[in-house]
């Protein structure tokens, strides 16, 4: 949180300049919020048991981060620095409440799925991190790009982790049975041959181990990411 805001000074650069594109692509790989900055781990642990939940969570984070970054960027010259963290918190919390109210009124089915994540979005350190490190010091357009990049960087890790956890832990993907059914009396598919779901996968520690494996693959492909000691 305390890192100095990165400045991108560009009085009249094109909307999709190299710099702006980098804002989107960097967080996908070499500056990924989860695997490199190790932020937002709490939600990655909690909701990666099912792919569907991971997708809904990613979409919510995308929305809140995008509009939050835009709002903070618009207000950046007005926010008194002594209470900036509080202002950022208020922005996240209000956005989350607005999303939740609108969903409850107009998309009740989605709202039921989302309800559990609302608290998690507010506490997601990626969001506060981007407000503080980027939106406070940059114009609206780069801030929006930064929000997109970070949300997608967050989303793909979440979905990959959820894919393995749901497949190996419950034998399903998006609720669809891949390996057959393990219900007593209704077994079919692999389960009739003695296959059993790995219950370890649905427990939170396995999310960390899968994230760890992704970090390992990423760093072995790009040696520049390995910290020196």
């Amino acid at each position: 949180m305390s890192e100095v805001a990165e400045k991108t000074k560009a009085p009249s650069e094109p909307l999709f300049s190299k710099k702006n594109k980098k804002l989107v692509t960097d967080p996908l790989t070499d500056n990924n919020p989860i695997t490199i900055q190790v932020l937002g781990i709490c939600s990655a642990l909690a909701i990666t048991v099912q792919v569907e939940q991971a997708v809904v969570m990613s979409a919510s984070v995308l929305f809140v981060l995008l509009f939050g970054n835009i709002t903070i960027s618009l207000l950046r010259n007005l926010i008194p620095s002594r209470i900036r963290i509080i202002v950022q918190l208020v922005v996240v919390a209000s956005l989350v409440i607005i999303v939740n109210e609108l969903l409850a009124a107009f998309l009740p089915d989605v709202s039921e799925k989302l309800s559990v994540f609302v608290g998690l979005i507010i506490t997601n350190c990626i969001i506060m991190g981007r407000f503080e490190a980027f939106a406070m010091g940059n114009k609206v357009w780069p801030s929006a790009m930064d929000a997109l990049g970070n949300s997608f960087g967050y989303a793909w890790i979440l979905i990959v982790v959820a894919f393995f956890r749901e497949l190996l832990g419950s034998g399903t993907i998006w609720g669809v049975q891949i390996f057959g059914s393990a219900l007593p009396g209704e077994e079919w598919g692999l389960y009739t041959m003695g296959y059993v779901n790995n219950n370890m996968m649905i427990l939170p520690p396995m999310a960390l181990i899968i994230v760890g494996v992704i970090i390992w693959i990423q760093r072995s492909r790009n040696k520049a990411l390995i910290e020196e000691h």
């Binding site: 607005i98 109210e101 409850a104």
Partner: peptide, 30 residues
């Protein structure tokens, strides 16, 4: 700083209250 904080609270409070009121009939039906 105080002025900003007060203005922020008033604006956010008003917006959220408005949204909650406007969506209430829909939520009740749901």
């Amino acid at each position: 700083t105080f002025g900003f904080a007060i203005a922020m609270v008033v604006v956010v409070g008003a917006v959220l209250a408005l949204i909650a009121m406007a969506t209430k009939p829909f939520k009740d039906t749901n």
